[in-house]
Design a protein around this nucleic acid. Sequence first.
DNA 1: ACGGGCATGTAAGCGGTTACATGATTCG
DNA 2: CGAATCATGTAACCGCTTACATGCCCGT
Lengths: 183, 183
Amino acid sequence: MSLRHGLLGLLAEGPASGYDLTQRFEKVVGPVWPAKHPQIYAELGRLATEGLIRVESEGPRGRKAYEITDAGLAEVRRWLVDTDPAQALRFEPLLRSFFFWLMEPDELAAHLDRESASYRQLATTYREYADAKDRGDFGFSPQTQSLRVAVEAGARIYTALAEWAQWAAERSRSPAAGRTGED
Amino acid sequence: MSLRHGLLGLLAEGPASGYDLTQRFEKVVGPVWPAKHPQIYAELGRLATEGLIRVESEGPRGRKAYEITDAGLAEVRRWLVDTDPAQALRFEPLLRSFFFWLMEPDELAAHLDRESASYRQLATTYREYADAKDRGDFGFSPQTQSLRVAVEAGARIYTALAEWAQWAAERSRSPAAGRTGED
DNA sequence: ACGGGCATGTAAGCGGTTACATGATTCG
DNA sequence: CGAATCATGTAACCGCTTACATGCCCGT
């Protein structure tokens, strides 16, 4: 039940339509919590009938902007404060790592090099974004400060993954059984 | 479609029953790819009818051990070598971080302290496991070497998250707008 | 006028969880 | 003999994705 709280959280920043929220999910929260438009529209419907959000205005081409209600704001706060986060990190590349022994060492090294490069790329993107925020490019609203913290997590995680993949690539290239005192 | 390849990968180590595989998922691969028994039994059924695995032996209490076929081994190798990993990292705690601005600074700091402690705990658990493997406690089979690499990823990611949460906690405690030259 | 993006939805199907159900075997 | 654990499955439901479907508005 995280999507509903994600939507409530975004609506806490101000009114938005299903379309707007779909864009936000695609661009900003997508990397940690993907959501496509059919699911978003469906959930908005449910949230509205439960009174956690309401239609704030209707615009051109049937656009409906929703705003969060007091009940909705209370609910997202309750979620943040009273429930503790589900500790599962679903990540396919790490599932694969359990089965690396099924690959030839050279295939594996090549795979890990590519992987490392792509993590490194993500890490620099997040790092640049963080720097831009620190320069004040997006202002210093509370929301922006939270985004700054989220971006920092992205930068750190992908840095760690890039280094891990590189470490693993070197390990897979080094003669099979030399296992003491590397890294 | 990652569960099927996870099952094939585990079966590549040797024959196992649905029950065995459920235990393995719960204990070892669960943290990156959770799977409950009904899903596993269902998938094993499908894999068997597709000829990627076959019943190897039947034991007490209706136990059925499956073994991987040549086709199955080819399929898991194909997955590892030819397809590139789905780059989405589904992680609720990071979704929450987008909405930290909805929490009171002291609530937030307390939340992050707890979070940091639990990541640190996970990191040390993985690190100890890694050390045990390096000491040779589990032998040096290729499978064990892969597990070693997977565990390293866990240790690094949770270390990064622990440091991130601590950084964020300090940031949330420090007077609202002091934003240059910390960390 | 028309193409692209805005905007909302429905339907079918897969992936995954929870609850229900059953029975065999082993160990103390 | 009873409890724990081994062992397999079914049914209902929810979460999520993919494909289908429709139409409006704005800019060139």
